[in-house]
Design a protein around this nucleic acid. Sequence first.
RNA 1: CGGGAUGUGGCGCAGCUUGGUAGCGCACUUCGUUCGGGACGAAGGGGACACAGGUUCGAAUCCUGUCAUCCCGACCA
Length: 594
Amino acid sequence: MRVSRLMLVTQRDVPAEAEIVSHQLLVRGGYIRRVTSGIYAYMPLMWRVLRKIKAIVEEEMDNAGALQTLLPQLHPSELWERSGRWQSYTAGEGIMFHLMDRQKRSLGLGPTHEEVITKIADEQIHSYKQLPVNIYQIQTKFRDEIRPRFGLMRSREFIMKDSYSFHSNEKDLGKTYKSMEVTYKRIFARCGLETVAVDADSGAIGGSASQEFMVTADAGEDLILTSKDGLYAANQEKAVSIPKEAILHNPSESKTISTPNQNSILELCSTNNLEPSQIVKVIIMIAILEEQVEQPLLLSIRGDQEINEVKVINFVAETINKQVIKLDQVNDEEKNRLKLDHIPFGFLGPDLKDNVLENISGWQKQFLRVTDHSAASLDCFVCGANVKDKHRIGMSWEKLGELTNKADIRKAQKGESCVHDPTMKLEERHGIEIGHIFQLGRKYSKSLQATFTNEQGQEEAFWMGCYGLGITRLAQAAIEQHHDEHGICWPLPIAPFEAVIVVINMKEPIQEEISGNIYKAMLAKGIDVLLDDRSERAGVKFKDADLIGIPWRIVVGRDAANGKVEIVQRVSRETLLVDSEQAIQRILQEKLSK
RNA sequence: CGGGAUGUGGCGCAGCUUGGUAGCGCACUUCGUUCGGGACGAAGGGGACACAGGUUCGAAUCCUGUCAUCCCGACCA
């Protein structure tokens, strides 16, 4: 392709709307144009990048035995009503774009394809003999994101590879799940990305296992915790660790002390010469369940630790076997509205009686009590006395009465010891989630009544897995990982062009001839090459080549008369003066080695 | 949805306080000089200032409302 024909429009100024460097470079390099909030046009350069990523994904998925399809983007609402997601995806979360057709039938634009694919699997697969299958598609998905941002990182229309596997038993699902993990790692490695696979929360979607693939980058919105030996990685919602040792609390007697206005751990400690780890902190939260049931929770945790709300939600959902819509703290407004003055916030103990709930409208009348292991393992501690301005020292669980539920509801933090090896400390990094694999189990197949006949001749719901991979997000994440002050440095396998020939002076016949020959020769060898034939000054061409990030540059200039050209690597800036034939060979070599 | 900010040619901005009918840099067009790291000079083209009301002889500027975009929180590939 000749640059003069490429519709290349680069910008010197950074658009005000672009916050992170990858977004800025995509806009400045003319890769994308915003059409409206969260909706982008992929310009010719961008489309080439996306096609290369798609090709790699397709190759690896096909190698893993997956089958490519293309599924509809308009989904009938009935299908989503059957899985129980229509309400929450349209009215509730509102993440699903929906519309009426002229027949007044309700349709939605697919944010994901579980419903459609499960329906098709049900219609097409009748016997265990047809299993397993793994079906995938790469296409545009729609999500009416609450807050689109960072260009393609979180857009409302985006390209995703999504696959779904169907199995006759859980073990077989595990096998495909594992093979997808390997496939994903190969895909990311081939795209030149450094990724970390982390244990993830499968929470609301359910299932037994789930892994996220994170591109490590400072601009990432997710926090991940890893161990240096590479044996442990998890996102913050799921991460576990061993908290630091508590400081021994061992007063001569247990008694109630007066602690006027000391309703925070900090004040309590500084006034009474205590350590946060000697205190059991008690927090009331409200879990909103299905049908607007409001379940009060009484959470106890060591004073120096923090609550992990996702773990709390999972615990509640498991314990009472109901879906948790969300978790709320009790704020001041609510304290006033519900007239909670009789509850001595700031002075609560784990033995707070249920009778404080008697006159609170809307709440269930019994606490669901949970004690985090960090608190449960304390032999002797300080806690609130359930009376304003009073705490108790030298307390123990025996004195308070038996503990009901113990669970891990604690937020793991960097610097804490790893569970698999206490000498290892957790490190914190930011990541961009570009892939997520799940063992769904039978949740969707059951709700959609998608079944097959098993070996015993009985109807059984499919075991399912699902495997997402954000194509457009991956492209931008790659820039986040591969750029410098001059622009993008695409990894060769996903670069829009592998090389660019910069002709210093188009009016010089020798330069024009040599560059033309190299161009033709490279095309003949299958190299994706750009010929910058514009009558721009050299500086402009160099700047543009750097900005759009072509991995190799061949400069045809002052040495052309001697049959020499320069070959420059974008990332390292290494420059070699060689014959044109050598330049072609070098790039061909690089291409084939990837 | 809650909190904050901003809307002026394709991009970045000034003008608004103290109303008088729009300006700068980049980009674009033409000519000349230049020509290995975003050249210089000259001459041009393009915007009724987000929209709708109002105040006024007169509104980008003041008032009211609406809309859009961006940033901070819950959601997610």
